[in-house]
Simulated assay, not measured.
Amino acid sequence: MTTLEFARERAEPMPAEQREELLRMPGFGSLYSDHMVTARWTAERGWHDARTQPLAEFSLHPATMAFHYGQTIFEGLKAFWRPAGQHVLFRPRDHAARFARSARRMAMPELPEADFLAAVEAVLRVDAAWVPPARGHSFYLRPFMIAAETHLSNRPAEEYLFAVIGSPARPAAAEPAPIRLWASPEYVRAADGGTGTIKCGGNYGGSYVAQREAAERGCHQVAWLDPRERRYVEEAGGSNLFFVEGDRLVTPPLSGTLLAGVTRDSILRLAGRLGLTVAEEPVALEDWERGCREGRITETFACGTARALAPVGHAVTPDREWAIGDGTTGPVTRRLLTALLDVQYGDAPDEFGWLHAVTPRRE
């Protein structure tokens, strides 16, 4: 049962013809739907003032604590079109649980699962017309929370702002272009006991210097190595990594520095249905290279909510480079991507109970 009741204020919707033109090829993260949800938390009142309202800018004091001490967390999940006016959210309860874990780690108030679900449902219902109807397209929802108290003390804030915005997202390509990964020898994404297992803003801002270094070397993203030995491959940018060895699918274990990706878990479970043996075990950089050169590791791919699956075609270090397989999208990557999209778009049974149906509000 929800504890928040979302008061509702309608925006003037974008004209249908203009919206449909934008939805033909929306890109990612640059186009936004008409509404947003907000709610506030204070130490005195708890969660309150929940509302669905027109998308608008926030007005924040320069001393807002989020600007100074980094108490910011977020999630990203997708909704998909269905006929007869219905839509589905993909694994929203798993995202709600991770949002709560992020809040605990950052000393922020937890938003109950029921309220998280009510918030994302509210945006999806009011902006149902923004959900693209074509396979491959989706509606990306971004829940986030910031410390909203005005104060310069170095401590957890006593006021927070939660919000959800929506953004129609570009198609997940059936044959995505392979990416090149830079194995950074200097920078690490996270350390034991740190915040690598959650989605807080600092994890991402702190990675951009290495991402820029990758771009300077002709790579799309960073292959993060473990913080202790700089030996074991952990993640690719903000995505989890998988390696294909024959009929084995290998991914690094959740060691305390890796994000427990919802897409990662989905791939692990779909792999068994496709007859693959799944292993969660460390993968050393030298073993990855050797396995590729010897033909044992035939595919590597990254996965995450935003891009689904992205094949890795080449890996680069300061003194060498190697191809994974023939440098193109491999058959296992293709099968897993198709299996994931089939569930999300309703072309395969939802055997795992991942889909959460939402019926748009009738005016």
Rank of each mutant, 00 (worst) to 15 (best):
R228V: 10
K199H: 12
G201I: 00
V188G: 06
P185G: 08
Y187P: 00
S167D: 04
W130T: 07
H151G: 15
E149A: 12
I179Y: 02
P185A: 08
P227D: 00
V131H: 02
S207G: 15
E213F: 04
Y208E: 02
S207M: 11
E175N: 13
I179G: 03
P143D: 15
A148M: 03
G166D: 00
R212P: 00
G205W: 01
R142S: 09
A174L: 08
G194V: 07
L141A: 12
P133L: 12
S184C: 15
R142N: 09
I165H: 08
A223H: 05
G206E: 01
Y232A: 13
S207N: 09
L161Q: 11
A128D: 11
A163M: 12
A177D: 08
L141H: 10
V164D: 14
R170V: 01
V233N: 14
A174N: 05
L152V: 15
G196E: 05
A169R: 11
Y187A: 15
L141E: 07
A129F: 07
A177Q: 13
S153L: 14
Q221H: 14
A134F: 03
E234G: 02
E213Q: 15
E175Q: 14
A173V: 00
P156M: 01
A172F: 12
L152E: 08
V209C: 11
A191S: 14
T195L: 01
R228P: 01
A177Y: 02
D127H: 03
G206W: 03
H137R: 15
V209W: 13
G136I: 12
I198Q: 10
W224S: 12
V188H: 09
S167Y: 01
S167V: 00
A128N: 10
P178M: 06
A210C: 06
A190G: 08
L141M: 12
D192T: 04
L152G: 12
E229W: 00
Y140F: 13
A172Q: 05
R231C: 04
H151L: 10
R170C: 02
L225T: 03
A190F: 04
G194F: 06
E234M: 04
A223I: 05
R189G: 15
E229S: 05
C200H: 07
A157F: 13
F162Y: 13
S138V: 08
L141G: 12
Q221I: 04
F162K: 11
Y140L: 09
A147F: 03
A191Q: 11
R142V: 05
I198N: 10
R180H: 07
A210G: 05
K199S: 06
I165A: 12
S207D: 05
P133G: 13
R135K: 08
A183F: 10
A215E: 10
V233M: 09
V233S: 14
C200Q: 09
A169I: 06
Q211V: 13
G206Q: 01
Y204E: 07
A191D: 08
A177G: 04
Y187M: 11
L225F: 03
V164L: 07
S207I: 02
S167Q: 05
Q211K: 02
F139P: 09
A169K: 10
V222C: 06
V164N: 13
D192I: 04
G136Q: 06
E216K: 11
A173N: 05
Q211R: 02
D226H: 10
A174G: 07
G218Y: 08
P168H: 13
